[in-house]
């Protein structure tokens, strides 16, 4: 990659035609426009969240906080429902991801072994679930019959293994661990358990990071569907379901706005609150993201190119 870039720039320094220079200018402009389009809504939301309720409702906020205020954030921090949802989401994400990653790794390693009898059939059995599923109600019935409705288990156990993630992990083991390694370990008298524990797991660290990230973000933190069907008890609701009530269904309970008499100010705070909530809900993942970005890219490429 790096070698190609430097090599390319060498050519281009030699003979850069007028057309190419013009083209590169257009290209840069295009990318700038795209970047601005992506940034604009984000900047708007952040700016509004730090503005005063009056400025928000008067529509005076564009790209910069107007009448800087932290009222929206203060109101959220006093709201127990949001915090409860936050704590629940952390719980589901933490334990759910541990469960997902463990299951995926212990399935992927045997299935990456060429000498495992029946591995093709089992892999196909997993891939088939990508194309066809029993559907919403039959799955719901299974969860119900296991007595998991309205329990924390329903948020964790049904997620299990994502077939796409399983394929990434299998590919990882197959491409990074040479078969000779198994032979050598076998000759030294190591059992498969021993090989798995002492050789495979330490080598699997990068793929564990990628899987943990995929599951934590895509399967747990950012979804609400499971909670919507399986949970009834408000106490168990993850953050996304609480957000849905406030952001989409418009139900902000009056206790949050109790101190405010004036109807207009109330309306203003209601809007302001939404902006602050959007920021608060997205910050944890966004904070994580620069650190794990490289792994994410690696995972995506591993799963798709190879």
């Amino acid at each position: 990659m790096a070698s190609m870039t430097s090599y390319e720039s060498n050519i281009n320094q030699v003979n850069e035609s007028a057309f190419d220079r013009f083209f590169m200018m257009g290209n840069t402009a295009f990318l700038l426009v795209i970047t601005v389009i992506v940034l604009l809504p984000l900047v708007f939301v952040v700016a509004a969240s730090f503005s005063s309720a009056e400025a928000v409702i008067a529509g005076r906020v564009i790209l910069w906080p107007v009448d800087f205020s932290l009222l929206g954030y203060e109101t959220i921090f006093e709201h127990s429902k949001v915090w409860n949802g936050f704590a629940n989401s952390l719980f589901y994400t933490f334990f759910g991801t541990i469960f997902n990653v463990t299951m995926t790794i212990i399935a992927a390693y045997p299935l990456s072994r060429q000498d495992l009898v029946g591995r093709r059939v089992i892999i196909i059995a997993f891939i088939f679930t990508m194309l066809f599923s029993g559907g919403l109600i039959p799955t719901y019935l299974v969860v119900r019959d296991l007595g998991m409705l309205n329990t924390r288990w329903a948020m964790i156990l049904p997620t299990g293994i994502g077939p796409f993630n399983l394929l990434i992990a299998i590919t990882f083991f197959r491409t990074t661990i040479p078969p000779e390694l198994h032979e050598a370990a076998r000759i030294d008298g190591a059992s498969d358990f021993r090989i798995f524990r002492s050789i495979i797991l330490p080598l699997a660290r990068p793929i564990i990071a990628v899987l943990a990230l995929f599951y934590a973000v895509n399967t747990h933190w950012n979804t609400y569907f499971q909670a919507l069907i399986y949970l009834k008890d408000q106490e168990l609701f993850p953050l996304q379901l609480v957000l849905r009530e406030i952001l989409i269904q418009n139900s902000i309970d009056a206790s949050m706005l109790i101190d405010i008499e004036d109807l207009k100010a109330r309306e203003g705070l209601r809007e302001l609150l939404r902006y602050s909530l959007i920021v608060v809900a997205s910050v944890p993942v966004m904070l994580l993201y620069p650190f794990v970005q490289k792994h994410f890219v690696k995972g995506m490429t591993l799963g798709s190119v190879k």
């Binding site: 299951m103 995926t104 212990i106 399935a107 390693y109 045997p110 299935l111 072994r113 000498d115 495992l116 009898v117 089992i122 059995a125 997993f126 679930t129 066809f132 599923s133 029993g134 559907g135 109600i137 039959p138 799955t139 019935l141 299974v142 296991l146 156990l157 049904p158 299990g160 293994i161 059992s191 498969d192 358990f193 798995f196």
Partner: peptide, 29 residues
């Protein structure tokens, strides 16, 4: 020779049966 690999696979396969294939059976409703 590879029995330990099947032991590793047991739990994932059980999960697959219960949460993915049992609903397919249930789809007969």
């Amino acid at each position: 020779r590879n029995w330990q690999l099947y032991v590793l696979l047991a739990l994932p396969l059980l999960w697959l049966l219960v949460f993915r294939y049992a609903p397919m059976y249930g789809a007969q409703i």
